[in-house]
């Protein structure tokens, strides 16, 4: 089959877009003072991550990333933002304290980034001898319903308990109409 002209460049462009979306979204989520912008940054980061998962041969995970993170978690956080007015008040601490804590946080996170990235890049990871399956959606389904069926059932129980617990905790302290 003849390849579409320029398809290699198009794939590279999509990859760069996914990488930039992930990095920009994470920076936005960590740096803005307004919470709602942070939520939007988290959404952007998750869309970029879905693209990266697609490049890592995990299309089912990229679908689930968009469904669960963008569709459920971010929307839930937006609801909490509407209910709780979380905008940060102007800092009560002095300007020097703000600068000091910011520099400390930047130093710690910079050190973590440098260390982890250096470790991941310089370590000689061993290539596997042979793959036993291709990691397709069919293999995922078979593994979920055979090897991991017990964990699969347990996770549904955890989700049920989480829903009930969230309802009970949020209902406590509410005045009767």
């Amino acid at each position: 089959m003849k390849e579409f002209p320029g398809s290699e460049y198009a794939v590279g462009f999509v990859f760069v877009v996914a990488v930039l979306a992930t990095i920009a979204g994470a920076s936005l989520a960590a740096l803005t003072t307004r919470i709602i912008r942070g939520v939007c940054g988290l959404m952007l980061c998750c869309v970029g991550l879905a693209g990266l998962y697609y490049f890592l041969h995990a299309p089912f995970l990229s679908l689930m990333e968009i469904l669960i993170y963008v569709g459920a978690i971010c929307v839930t956080i937006v609801f909490a933002v509407m209910l709780a007015e979380p905008d940060e008040a102007p800092a009560r601490e002095s300007r020097r304290a703000v600068l000091g804590w910011g520099a400390l946080a930047l130093a710690i996170s910079g050190a973590v980034f440098w260390g982890v990235a250096k470790l991941g890049m310089s370590h000689a990871w061993a290539k596997p001898a042979a793959a036993v399956n291709t990691g397709s959606v069919k293999d995922l389904g078979v593994a979920l319903l055979t090897t991991y069926s017990f964990a699969f059932e347990l996770i549904s129980l955890v989700l049920l308990v989480a829903i009930l617990g969230a309802l009970v905790v949020a209902r406590y302290g509410r005045t009767k109409p």
Binding site: I23, W101, L104, A105, L106, I108, S109, V116
Partner: peptide
């Protein structure tokens, strides 16, 4: 791996 390290660093910065 570099992007994962960046996400971890951004998360730690945000937590602090």
């Amino acid at each position: 791996l570099a992007i994962a390290a960046f996400l971890l660093a951004a998360g730690i910065y945000g937590l602090i």
